[in-house]
Design a protein around this nucleic acid. Structure first.
Length: 892
RNA sequence: GGGCGAUUAGCUCAGUUGGUUAGAGCGCAGCGUUGACAUCGCUGAGGUCGUAGGUUCAAAUCCUACAUCGCCCACCA
């Protein structure tokens, strides 16, 4: 506790501090009816494996908000959770057992699901450890799994309500089918990829009225000849002069030799292909609709692995792509393949396994989304839910307004089983939904009932997350207090998958919005800007960079890496910046601890601190840093409230490093080196305020320092995690800020001359600083200028007449002039050149400003304060120019 | 086919209600180490804010086109 090592070592402090926070129960909020709760439900990571950087970003942003609110005194609840991730997890476990040479069918449903549960147990603990390493201050006792009893009940209750309300239905519809996962998918689970392919022109012979062959043909164009076997019509646009006379006639399907009608349908584009399209209602969404309009039969010609079935005649049992080759060859032989063109089209791939999706008609369950979408649209429109960045509201609206029914059944084994039972007793065909497992048919009383074998889309349970984690469907105290939750924070890539559906089901189940704010963060990419994916092999384990740079470095980099909602690239150089900052904070604190030595420093009293008048007799630099601390505190709160963590982080970085460490601490040293301990209270004040401000972003280094500081500063709370967050209440002091800026400018000007003239760094030099207006300020800070610029003696004079003019270097500020005798180092010509260059710049500036101020339009239309500002700038530039001219004249 | 985002210093990025001479980190150049920090300090170089118009007293910021890159949505076989 006594010694602070020279370099901040995250490994030393992180684990014990996290343990301490847990042991003290700081992550667990108390319900306080008099306070405004702040609640975030963590997006549950999939139990498919490890966390990735996206999760680290989520954890960082949410923990930042939670810690901020906790310090503000709000009851702050953060519920962690894990998602069973139906299809994804099933795939992962299938791959696992495949290593043992076993398929899920070998095991059977029950055994397989057992294996998945084993996997879940293993992965969950790994995920928790990763989260803890990131410093998340969530309430671990409330961790929820989507397959837990509570969420199970919520799922069944929701299903039952929707079912009874007629908002869930079952039907033979065309859906996206993954032949590898052998399940239906929702539209969102299909990735469309532009793929180069071919467009084949095929001739279908026409039959006459008696059904006899003719020598006429109708020519169709298709990208998928293998589906010819499922054709049940040819469609043409009824306006198309080339073809419209054929409507009502019959064509003969090649190879299969099935007569099919020619129908007229508006959906057919006359521009594309031949203007005639083969209609395959069983294997194409558009064709399914055309089929519906013309009452065409639906032929499904493939099995669930996309091999052709008995409907495909000669191709029975053959894979779909093999069939394509065979059928093309057959058409060629028959002389019916007219030509082939290159054609790129977008081909759907399974988002889980990348297999080409097959549209297939099958019996699936759907949520009727229209009635649910309406209130969800309203909630965003009327501002009950705000989405940040704002542009995503439009994206949300567009999707919602064009929403299509949601296919929720999956032919999987892992997931929430659909709570629907069928009576298989003779003569009874009852189908019913139930929350509890039923033991008999409510219609006929028979015990011969079977549950639907399918499971629900994973996102069905995720959609209930904000209320199901708080106890719904029970009317729990948690639900009443914490719901609606405050912020839903996640990546913009799951706006539709998750956010939109939570809003719909939240409103449906609870009548309330599930959350007030949606904050969507960007995606983390690698150094080249590529998305991190397993197949690219550029995935980074968060623990890897946490081990290398420390959690705070990772969090700082995540929080400040980019603007809200924008993607950003992550690489080591950025993380080094974060690590260096943590080290900087550590060392600045270390300096304070050393300076305070054995004594425990008393912070300035609150009343004095908060009033500028109360501070008026303090040294200028003390007044300055306190004023700056107040404005920075205010600004940080404002930015965090606007979800601009990036700007808040940058502001704190600049404030702490440039203003506190580089300037204030260096100024404080001037007194401290004389044995004057008067800066200690202000050092203590600024340091501990900075730590409070920084804690939500960098919890470990700040808490570690805090625990050291408690021995050196009086009255600090027992732990920073529960200390009060500074809000910047108190008067700032613009006079002190301006005067300090002047002092810093003078110091910089002298340093600049020294560097340019090659004066040895250690050497003290004589300098003249001339100023009428700033005389008293400079007099009051004489020791600072002397020490920081290494000047001795320092002559403070009203004007430069008393300064030497030969062999001097000079700098001209608007309020002061610096003259440094450096005989021997000065080239008069170079000096004149330098000053003239500056004068030219100032002259340009003056000209610009004068023009602007002379402009009648500007004077009449611009706000007074803008005009005043421009006048000030002009005065400053004028004053600089006068000074420069005088200096140049003195050079002779 | 619609929509969105990006385009600012060599690199990575900020710049959120239009108003300083456009900023930071890294990199680069020069100088510097007997106690906070070389994971550092000091000084400096470096940008006509993608292009072309427009609105305005005032544009990196608002509008319109265009270009390049990326993403999302969409049933053109």
């Amino acid at each position: 506790m006594k010694d602070m090592p020279k370099a901040y070592d995250p490994k030393e402090v992180e684990a014990p501090l996290y343990q301490m926070w847990m042991d003290k129960g700081y992550f667990k909020p108390r319900i306080d009816p008099d306070k405004t709760p702040f609640c975030i439900i963590m997006p549950p990571p999939n139990v498919t494996g490890e966390l990735h950087l996206g999760h680290a970003l989520t954890a960082t942003m949410e923990d930042l908000l939670i810690r901020w609110h906790r310090m503000l005194g709000d009851p702050a609840l953060w519920i962690p959770g894990v998602d069973h991730a139906g299809i994804a997890t099933q795939n992962v476990v299938e791959r696992e057992i495949a290593k043992e040479g076993v398929s899920r069918h070998d095991l059977g449903r029950e055994k397989f699901v057992e294996r998945v549960w084993q996997w879940v147990g293993h992965v969950r603990s790994r995920i928790s450890v990763q989260h803890m390493r990131l410093g998340v201050s969530c309430d671990w006792d409330r961790e929820v799994f989507t397959m837990d009893e509570g969420p199970q009940l919520a799922v069944r209750t929701t299903f039952k309500h929707l079912f009874d309300d007629g908002l869930i239905y079952r039907g033979e519809r065309i859906t996206n089918w993954c032949p590898r996962c052998t399940t239906a998918l929702s539209d969102l689970e299909v990735d469309h990829q532009e793929t180069a392919g071919s467009l084949w022109y095929v001739k279908y012979p026409l039959l006459d009225d008696e059904g006899n062959p003719t020598d006429e043909f109708i020519r169709v164009a298709t990208t998928r000849p293998e589906t010819i076997v499922g054709d049940t019509a040819v469609a043409v646009n009824p306006e198309d002069d080339r073809w419209k006379d054929l409507i009502g006639r019959t064509a003969l399907l090649p190879v299969i030799e099935r007569p099919i009608p020619i129908v007229g349908d508006e959906a057919v584009e006359t521009e594309f292909g031949t203007g005639a399209v083969k209609v395959t209602p069983g294997h194409d969404p558009t064709d399914f609709e055309i089929g519906g309009r013309h009452d065409l039969p639906v032929i499904v010609a493939m099995d669930d692995e996309a091999k052709m079935n008995e409907q495909a005649g000669p191709y029975d049992g053959v894979d779909r792509f093999e069939t394509r080759k065979l059928i093309l060859a057959d058409l060629e032989k028959l002389g019916l393949l007219e030509k082939k063109e290159d054609h790129t089209s977008s081909v759907g791939h399974c988002s889980r396994c990348d297999t080409i999706v097959e549209p297939i008609v099958s019996n699936q369950w759907f949520v009727k989304t229209g009635p649910l979408a309406k209130p969800a649209i309203e909630a965003v429109k009327d501002g009950r839910i705000e989405i940040t960045p704002r542009r995503f509201e439009d994206v949300y609206m567009h999707w919602m307004e064009n929403i299509r029914d949601w296919c929720i059944s999956r032919q999987l084994w892992w997931g929430h089983r659909i709570p629907v039972w069928y009576c298989i007793a003779d003569g009874c065909e009852e189908m019913f939904a139930s929350i509890e497992d039923p033991d008999q048919c409510p219609n006929c009383g028979s015990g011969e009932i079977e549950q639907d074998p399918n499971v629900l889309d994973t996102w069905f349970s995720s959609a209930l997350w904000p209320h199901s984690t708080l106890g719904w469907p029970e009317d729990s105290e948690d639900l009443r207090y914490w719901h609606p939750t405050s912020v839903l924070e996640t990546g913009y890539d799951i706006l539709f998958f998750w956010v939109a559906r939570m809003i719909m089901s939240g409103l449906y189940n609870t009548g309330e919005v599930p959350f007030r704010h949606v904050y969507l963060h960007g995606l983390i990419r690698d150094e080249k800007g590529d998305k991190m994916t397993k197949s690219r092999g550029n995935v980074v384990d968060p623990l890897e960079i946490v081990d290398k740079f420390g959690t705070d470095a990772v969090r700082f980099t995540m929080a400040t890496g980019g603007a809200p909602g924008n993607d950003f690239r992550l690489f080591d150089e950025k993380l080094e910046g974060g690590r260096n900052f943590a080290n900087k904070v550590w060392n600045a604190a270390r300096y304070f601890v050393q300076s305070a030595s054995e004594q425990s420093v008393q912070l300035p009293d609150a009343a004095t601190l908060s009033s500028a008048a109360g501070r008026s007799d303090w040294p200028l630099e003390d007044r300055w840093i306190v004023s700056r601390t107040l404005s920075v505190s205010r600004e940080v709160n404002r930015l965090l409230g606007d979800f601009q963590a990036n700007e808040a982080g940058r502001l704190l970085y600049d404030f702490f490093w440039s203003e506190y460490a580089d300037w204030y601490v260096e100024m404080a040293k001037v007194r401290l080196k004389e044995g004057d301990t008067s800066p200690l209270p202000v050092l203590a004040y600024t340091l501990q305020t900075s730590l409070r401000l920084l804690h939500p972003i960098m919890p470990f280094v700040t808490e570690a320092i805090w625990q050291h500081l408690r021995d050196h500063i009086d009255g600090l709370e027992e732990a920073l995690i529960v200390a009060a967050y500074p809000t910047g209440d108190g008067e700032t002091d613009s006079d002190a800020e301006e005067q300090t800026e002047l002092v810093m400018d003078v110091v910089r000007a002298i340093r600049n001359i020294r560097a340019e003239r090659g004066v040895e760094p250690g050497r003290f030099i004589e300098a003249y600083v001339a100023s009428k207006s700033a005389g008293p300020t400079l007099e009051g800070t004489r020791p600072l200028v002397e020490a920081l610029a290494r000047v001795r003696p320092l002559h403070l004079v009203p004007d430069t007449t008393s300064a030497p003019s030969d062999g001097v270097a000079s700098a001209v500020l608007s309020e002061a002039q610096v003259v440094i005798p450096l005989a021997g180092l000065i080239d008069a010509e170079a000096e004149r050149e330098k000053l003239s260059k500056q004068l030219a710049e100032d002259a340009g500036e003056i000209k610009r400003l004068e023009g602007k101020l002379a402009n009648e339009q500007f004077r009449s239309k611009a706000p007074a304060e803008v005009i005043a500002k421009e006048q000030e700038k002009l005065a400053a530039a004028g004053s600089r120019a006068d000074g420069l001219r005088a200096r140049i004249a003195e050079l002779g």
